[in-house]
Simulated scan of single mutants.
Amino acid sequence: MDSVAIRRRIALGTAVLTASGLLALAAPGSAQAADSYCPGRKVKDLPFSTGTVHVYKANGYVCAVTFPKHSSTAKRPMSVSVQARGNRPVVDKGRYSHHAGPITVHAGHRCVWIKGSVGSGKVSSGWILC
C-alpha cells in the first residue's frame, strides 16, 4: 500500500468518526425538542380527552403548554391559561396545529390555576403547586 492510499483511509476514518460524533451530540437535543418549550423541571401533566397540558416550574415561574393527543397538520382550536392566585389569567387561545403556549407567569410561592383545551376537550386544574 502506498502513502496516498494510507492517507485516504485515514481521512475517511476521521470523517466517519467526526460524523458519528456529531450525530451523537445532535440526537439528545432532538429527543428533548417537545419538552424544550418551557424552562425548568416538569412538575405536572394534566391529561384530558383530546390532549395534555404540561406544567413546568423554575425559580418562581410557572410555564404551561397544551399539546393535542393526536398530532396533525390541521389547525384546530387550542388554548392554555395560567393564573397565579391574586392575578389575572394569562391566556394563549387560537387555532393551532401543534401546541398552544408556552405561557409563563411569575407565581413566586403562590398557587396557580391552569386550564387547557383542544377542540371540545378541556381541563381545569383548580389551585395547584401551593
Rank of each mutant, 00 (worst) to 15 (best):
L23A: 15
L23W: 12
L23I: 08
L23C: 10
A24Q: 10
A24V: 08
L25T: 14
L25W: 14
L25A: 15
L25C: 13
A26W: 12
A26N: 08
A26D: 10
P28M: 07
P28G: 08
P28Q: 09
P28S: 08
G29D: 10
G29Q: 10
G29I: 04
G29F: 12
S30P: 08
S30R: 06
S30H: 13
A31V: 08
A31D: 15
Q32K: 11
Q32H: 08
Q32L: 07
A33P: 03
A33R: 14
A33K: 13
A33T: 07
A34P: 09
A34V: 08
A34R: 05
D35L: 06
D35M: 04
S36E: 12
Y37N: 05
Y37R: 07
Y37W: 12
C38K: 01
C38E: 01
G40S: 03
G40L: 01
R41M: 02
R41F: 00
K42E: 02
K42Q: 07
K42R: 09
K42G: 03
K42H: 04
K42C: 01
K42D: 01
V43I: 09
V43K: 04
V43P: 01
K44I: 03
K44T: 02
K44D: 02
D45W: 03
L46G: 07
P47M: 05
P47W: 03
P47K: 11
P47H: 11
F48E: 04
F48V: 05
F48H: 10
F48T: 07
S49C: 12
T50P: 01
T50V: 04
T50W: 04
T50Y: 07
G51N: 06
G51Y: 01
V53S: 03
V53P: 00
H54R: 10
V55E: 01
K57I: 00
A58Q: 05
N59R: 05
G60F: 05
Y61H: 10
Y61V: 02
Y61T: 04
Y61G: 01
V62M: 02
V62D: 00
V62P: 00
V62L: 00
V62K: 02
C63T: 05
C63R: 00
C63Y: 02
A64I: 01
A64T: 02
A64E: 00
A64H: 04
A64K: 00
V65P: 02
V65N: 01
T66C: 00
T66P: 00
P68R: 03
P68W: 04
K69R: 15
K69E: 11
S71F: 11
S71N: 13
S72M: 13
S72G: 13
S72R: 09
S72V: 10
T73L: 15
T73D: 13
T73Q: 09
A74L: 10
A74T: 13
A74K: 15
K75H: 15
K75G: 11
R76V: 14
R76D: 08
P77G: 12
P77T: 14
P77K: 14
M78G: 09
M78P: 11
M78A: 14
M78H: 08
S79N: 14
S79H: 14
S79Y: 14
S79R: 14
V80L: 08
V80Y: 03
S81Y: 12
